[in-house]
Nucleic acid binder design. Structure first.
Lengths: 161, 161
DNA sequence: TCAGCTCGGTTGCTTCATGCAACTCACTTG
DNA sequence: CAAGTGAGTTGCATGAAGCAACCGAGCTGA
């Protein structure tokens, strides 16, 4: 048999996270939820995803504790999908993906597909990934990795090139 | 036929980015490159990925302009895979994934699999996703979306719940 | 009252991608 | 000259994706 390899047991938070959301449809559903979409039909209308796959992904997201099902009416019983606290924390991941696409895929001279506005400061904005300690932007050359369980991750400095 | 749906044509930078790296193995290869790994055999040893799939993913990353192949010896000709500028800019995405896993998957009380150290400030650190304009952490409730091409993306405020 | 519509799925079918093991090719080393 | 190494390629079996059709509970309106 050939089940998709589980990444949950690797000693790496990136791998463990990807075990839950390492799938394009899953992330696009999350994007939709961040855009305010909640219902099966809204996702189905918004994304060119097969309905059976959508069912699978929504169930997996609920099982992962990223979305939760909330009834919005009885008779007929209907649910919508909302973010849990953990799901809300994925916002940064989605924004980081959007930022990369804006920089590296959107053709030069063209506007990005959408613009984000930060209501707190009022500016058009985009995500930046910074050091939680000093607030500087994190670059590969400046970050070292210290493994906490020995063997699996090399203690080498990150890429200088 | 049933080819995997292309996301490249959707009017969304998240979708377009996922069209290139919306696959768990792809992202784990990038993680490896950020950790300093460069060669086919290093990836193959580090990840439980099938070798044919590894070949596919590396070729796709090169085609996407995220990695480039550099010969490190002739006779026999051997290449290594290095980051392009675009690839280097994916560092933030990987760090954001690691951060989420550290917060939401690593069992409470246990240390994260790896700790990142920011050489610039000298502190143990983790990624934070902030507003490029004001430096505040970006939360779903504070961000509005303005579509630049009409129809496809709703102008609604992002999730309040 | 009954045909038709909506929502949120499920079922069947076909094709594609994945996982695995085995094999190849061009060298290098002992 | 036998064995090893790096970087793949090939073949096969199975699971997942895409698509279309179907379903059941309730509402709608003529």
């Amino acid at each position: 048999m050939t089940t998709r390899t589980s990444l949950a047991d690797l000693p790496c938070s990136v791998a463990r996270t990807l075990d839950l959301i390492g799938d394009a449809w899953t992330v696009l559903i999350l994007r939709d939820v961040f855009y305010g979409r909640r219902r099966f039909s809204e996702f189905a209308d918004s994304l060119p995803i097969a309905r059976n796959v959508l069912t699978h992904r929504l169930n997996a997201l609920v099982a992962a504790g990223i979305l939760r099902k909330v009834a919005y009416q009885e008779r007929p019983l209907r649910h919508e999908y909302r973010l849990t606290d953990a799901g809300r924390d994925l916002f940064g991941v989605v924004l980081a993906l959007a930022r990369w696409g804006d920089q590296h895929i959107t053709p030069a001279g063209q506007p990005a597909p959408v613009t984000f506005v930060h209501a707190v400061c009022g500016h058009d904005t985009h995500a930046e990934v910074v050091c939680a300690a000093c607030g500087e932007r994190l670059e590969p050359r400046d970050v070292r990795v210290r493994p906490n369980f020995g063997q699996d991750v090399p203690a080498v400095a990150l890429a200088q090139d």
